[in-house]
Design a protein around this nucleic acid. Structure first.
Lengths: 235, 235
DNA sequence: CCTTTGTGTTGACGTTTATCAAAGATTGTC
DNA sequence: GACAATCTTTGATAAACGTCAACACAAAGG
């Protein structure tokens, strides 16, 4: 297991002894598709590392509307930033997408360890810093971009991320979830993809999308401007 | 000056010697209204503490549209989270609202100091943690609430924050800026306030707003739900 | 005191995107 | 392979906001 831990950014700098301690405070969790891990409002006493599958972090409105804030893939931790609050409660709900495996770690035990490893503190701060930046980018997208712009930006980002795969983007997430992640209704998402198809920018085959006209796509996305980094670096 | 530093959350735990070091790396800045401090995209080598006036952090779209992300008031630091990135660039623009005084601190010097004070690391992490939470709340507001809901939520939050002042909220910021902070066009903001007035929820006198019907206001805002904390705890 | 400039307000109108409803697709399961 | 359940698409309609343009109002400055 220690190898699994070391692959994550956060634990990478721990020495053997520390890794062992972290292991000691960890718990293995296995969940099937659609299971829920925690709810917004619950006391947050542990944080998590995904090793398989995906976790969807989302918020709910009173009317049942759901907004996906983030989708966590293997190798990434989440809810670790809450450790530092007085009496932390999860600000989001978490549930699985697909068969999912994770470790959970005890906050207070980990805090104790942090006190002895400034290096790991720095890692953690780097981590939080990136998350902050991403959230700011997200707010930017929500307020300064149209729905069309967001979808274009997303596709463009994903296309750039995986150029290896020969112009094809695999949405490894249900379209509805993706739509929520992009703050668009499923219907609208569908229509936008349809439009892009008509404009010969992309071609949709189920849940894989072929990019035909990179530049055209970029033109739709570009209002982004200034701040580098695309919508959802990972996801 | 050291007293001024110690009043801020971030520096509160430093001992005399450390405070002196921080002072040594600091620079005093005085700006008049509307001056700009830095632009999005610039290299970020310093972070800031506001001691007087206010700083508006905002992003610009290509078409000139402006979205205010945060308004920083005296006693608060900003841009400190960037220290932990490889080659940090400001993700936002910063300019003053009113006569403003601040200190700026050198990132690398401060990082050196951080290595010696786990306590301050923890402070900083607490700080970032709160910011993260606030941004998530913001995304929630943007996606799960209507413009009316956001304005109501804002008023309600501010009213609760300053119950001392006898039912009156002072917007110590131009309405246009506030509108942008709430992601609403100035025209719409004006109309929403007008509506609330007609519904006898509030009464507007220039830039001070009297709350008449707290509960009615809350009813408009309540879709917020779950996650405690109001829109913009400070601002 | 009267311009001037920035800021807030009001009205008419247009666009984007949500909503509702229903029909097609997919997927998994027995 | 057929059925159910879920996801996705499509169409028609409507609401919420944004846009544009003109106007009021205030503070600043000659």
């Amino acid at each position: 297991m220690s190898s699994e831990l070391k692959q994550s950014y956060l634990f990478a700098r721990l020495d053997e002894e520390q890794i062992q301690r972290v292991e000691a405070m960890s718990r293995r969790i296995r969940l099937s598709d659609g299971q829920h891990l925690f709810q917004a409002g619950e006391k947050a006493t542990r944080f998590y590392l995904v090793t398989q599958g995906q976790i969807k972090l989302y918020r709910l409105a009173l009317n049942g509307n759901e907004k996906v804030i983030e989708i966590i893939s293997p190798g990434h931790t989440f809810a670790e930033a809450l450790m530092f609050q007085e009496s932390p409660n999860f600000p989001v709900n978490a549930s699985t997408i697909g068969e999912t495996e994770l470790y959970s770690f005890d906050n207070t035990a980990f805090l104790g360890m942090l006190r002895e490893s400034v290096d790991t503190c720095f890692r953690l701060m780097g981590d939080m810093s990136q998350r902050l930046k991403r959230l700011i980018k997200e707010i930017d997208d929500l307020t300064l971009q149209s729905a069309t712009g967001r979808v274009a930006g997303f596709l463009w980002g994903r296309w750039n991320a995986g150029k290896a795969n020969g112009n094809t983007i695999e949405l490894n997430v249900p379209k509805g979830v993706l739509a929520s992640r992009l703050s668009v209704k499923p219907e609208t998402f569908s229509r936008i993809l349809h439009n892009f198809s008509e404009q010969k920018l992309i071609q949709v085959h189920g849940s894989s999308i072929e990019v035909i006209d990179e530049e055209g796509l970029y033109r739709h996305a570009e209002s982004a401007g200034i701040c580098g980094g695309s919508l959802s670096p990972d996801l």
